[in-house]
């Protein structure tokens, strides 16, 4: 165990998981990851998450949609000017609807793309350290540690009585 290694602990309880994360963080371990069957704000809080940049994707996507909607309708009207129903060639009120729909469409698609990029999905490589119970009822904590600190990390994880503690290569696909 001279190389860096990874430890994966499976927990039955939420408070054990959160305590393990907090202790690892306090001890200065980088690369702590958590698994949970549902999004839990205690875990997110323990890991010190900030705002997700997904919101930037949504905003930029939405604004692009608005601009596209107005630009496209205006351009096509000017491209072949035809008076319909006595309305101006460029009828902004009517085009608001197209711009609105495209705002939503582009915003939603950009959000989805942003999510995939930020959370590294799709990822179909087989997981090296993973417990299929993570999608059922168990929580998991994964930590990467240098050779010397591996024991310390193991002690912290064991201190919260995991159901299972597995060791894998450092930098494993988690």
């Amino acid at each position: 165990m001279s190389q860096s290694g990874g430890l994966l602990a499976s927990y039955e309880y939420l408070d054990s998981t959160v305590d393990a994360i907090e202790q690892l963080k306090k001890a200065g371990f980088k690369g702590v990851k958590a698994y949970s069957p549902y999004p839990d704000h205690h875990i997110e809080h323990a890991l010190g998450y900030d705002q997700s940049p997904v919101r930037v994707w949504t905003l930029v996507g939405g604004l692009t949609g608005t601009a596209t909607g107005f630009a496209f309708t205006t351009w096509t009207s000017v491209d072949w000017p035809l008076v319909v129903g006595g309305k101006p060639i460029v009828s902004i009120p009517a085009y608001i609807i197209i711009a609105f729909e495209l705002t939503i469409l582009f915003g939603a698609l950009a959000t989805l793309i942003g999510l995939f990029i930020l959370s590294r999905l799709p990822d179909l490589r087989p997981a090296v350290v993973y417990d299929p119970e993570f999608t059922a009822g168990r929580y998991g904590v994964y930590v990467q540690a240098e050779g010397g600190r591996l024991d310390e990390a193991r002690n912290i994880l064991n201190g919260q009585e995991p159901i299972e503690l597995r060791e894998g290569e450092g930098g494993a696909n988690v």
Binding site: T58, E101, T111, G114, L118, S119, L121, L124, Y130
Partner: peptide, 30 residues
Amino acid sequence: MGWRGTDQQWHHFGKAYIFLAALATPLVLS
């Protein structure tokens, strides 16, 4: 897509879900 329920995935997922809900709300009325 190889979802594993990591903290990182849930974090972005939760936010993306809220934004999609916020976009779908005016959409359904429109």
